[in-house]
Design a binder for these strands. Structure first.
Lengths: 211, 211
DNA sequence: TGTACATCAGTGAACGCGCGTTCACTGATGTAC
DNA sequence: TGTACATCAGTGAACGCGCGTTCACTGATGTAC
C-alpha cells in the first residue's frame, strides 16, 4: 500500500488511497446498526464515496469483506482481553477486569462482535481459521483462569470453568445487546451480573457434573 | 377456519384448507436452516405449494408472519418450561429439568428460538407484546427459583439470580447452536455445563455486587 | 529535470436475480331458498 | 333435493427495487530513461 502522506486531510479524488481500510470501517458500522444480514456492499461503497465496483479491487466479494471484519474484530477483542489481564492489581482483579473488557467490547463494537460470531457456519471443508481463532481466545481464557487460581479447582478441569465463564459472558452480552436485560436505576448492571456470576462459578466449581 | 375433514390426506387443491398453519410451519423450518435473515416468503410459499400472493390472505406481510412464529415459539417454550417444573422430584431436580428443557428447546427448535430472540428491535412505540412476553418468561423463572429455594438467598434478590441463570442458559444455547462449544466423547455436554453452572450460581449467590 | 510509459485503483453502465407486494381475476365452498 | 348466489381462499402476472457482480474503460501515480 502506497505510503499515505500524513495530515488530517480526509482526501477525495480518483484514488481513494485508503479504500480497503475505509470499507472495513464502513462494514463495521453498518453491521453494528443493522446486523450482518442488513449489511450491504452498495451501502458501504456509498458511505465511503466510491462506486460499488471499486470494492473488488480489494476483496474477492462480500464474504471476503465480512471475513476480514471478523478477523479485525477478533484481533481487537484479543488485544483488549490481553491488555486487561496484563494490568495492575491482584490476579482476581485482573481476571474480573478481563470480563468487563469482554462486555465493554461487545457493547462498544457490536459490529465486530456480530461479525466474529456470525461470520460463518461455512461449508464443512477444512475451515481452520475459525477453529484456530476460537482456540486462541479460549486458550487465553483458560490461561487467565490458571494464573488467577494457581491452586486450580478441586477436581474440576479449568477448561470446564472457562467454558462456563465464557457462556455466561456471551449470554449477558447478547441479552444486553438485544435490550433484554432489564436496566435502570437500582437494577444491577451487566457488569454487576458478570462479576457476581463469575465469582459464583469460580467458587462453586465442584465435581458435580455427570461425565 | 373450515372444519377440516379428518384423515391423513395431505390434500392438494384450489383451497389449501390449512394454509396459515402450513406457512408458519414452513417459516419455522426455514428459519431453523438459514436464520431469520435467510428466510423468504417466496420459499415458504413454494414449500407449501402455493403462490406467494396467497400468503397475504393470512398475514399482513413478512413481519407479521415472523411475529406469529415468535408467538408460537414462545408459547411452546413457556409450555415446556412449565411442564418440566410441574414434574415429579425434589424442587431442585425440577428446577434442573427446567434448565434442560430450555437447552433442549433451543436445540430442537432453533427456528422458534431465533424468532423469539430476533423478532424485533422494533420502533420505540408502545411495543407491549414483547415486553409482556419477556416478563412472563422471566416471572416463570423467578417463581421457579422461589419455590425451589424457599429460604431465598442471603441478601440477594432472587431476580438477580434468575437473570444470571437465564444469561448462562442463553449463552450455552447460542454457543452450542453456533457450533462453538467443543464437543465430543470425554467432554462435558451442554447439559453438564448448565447443571454445574446453575448449581454454582445458586450456591454462590452472595451480596458481592456493587449496586 | 523532463518525458514516455506501465501500473493499477478507480468509474459507470449494465447484467441477472430474487425479493416483497399489488392487482384483477377465478374457482371451490357452503348457504338460502 | 336442486339451484342461484355470496363469500373468499386461491392464482398468476406484473411491479419496482436493491442486491452482488462483471466489464471495458479511464485517469492518476510513480518509475525508467
Amino acid at each position: 500500500m502506497r505510503p499515505w502522506r500524513s495530515g488530517p486531510s480526509d482526501r477525495r479524488g480518483y484514488h481513494h488511497g485508503n479504500l480497503k481500510e475505509a470499507l472495513i470501517e464502513a462494514a463495521r458500522r453498518f453491521i453494528a446498526e443493522r446486523g450482518i444480514g442488513g449489511f450491504t456492499l452498495v451501502d458501504a461503497a456509498r458511505l465511503v464515496g466510491v462506486s460499488p465496483a471499486a470494492l473488488y479491487r480489494h476483496f474477492r466479494g462480500r464474504e471476503a469483506l465480512l471475513e476480514e471484519v471478523a478477523e479485525r474484530g477478533f484481533a481487537e477483542l484479543a488485544g483488549r482481553l490481553a491488555r486487561a489481564l496484563r494490568g495492575p492489581g491482584t490476579p482476581l482483579e485482573r481476571f474480573t477486569r478481563m470480563g468487563e473488557a469482554y462486555l465493554t467490547f461487545a457493547e462498544e463494537e457490536p459490529g465486530y462482535y456480530a461479525a466474529i460470531f456470525e461470520a460463518r457456519p461455512a461449508p464443512p471443508e477444512g475451515c481452520p481459521p475459525q477453529i484456530t481463532r476460537d482456540r486462541d481466545a479460549f486458550g487465553l481464557l483458560v490461561e487467565a483462569l490458571r494464573s488467577t487460581f494457581p491452586d486450580g479447582f478441586p477436581g474440576v478441569d479449568p477448561r470446564f470453568v472457562a467454558l462456563e465463564v465464557w457462556a455466561l459472558s456471551h449470554g449477558i452480552a447478547t441479552l444486553s445487546a438485544a435490550g433484554r436485560l432489564p436496566a435502570g436505576p437500582g437494577l444491577p448492571t451487566k457488569y454487576d451480573l458478570l462479576r457476581a456470576g463469575v465469582l459464583a462459578l469460580v467458587h462453586g466449581a465442584r465435581p458435580t457434573r455427570a461425565s
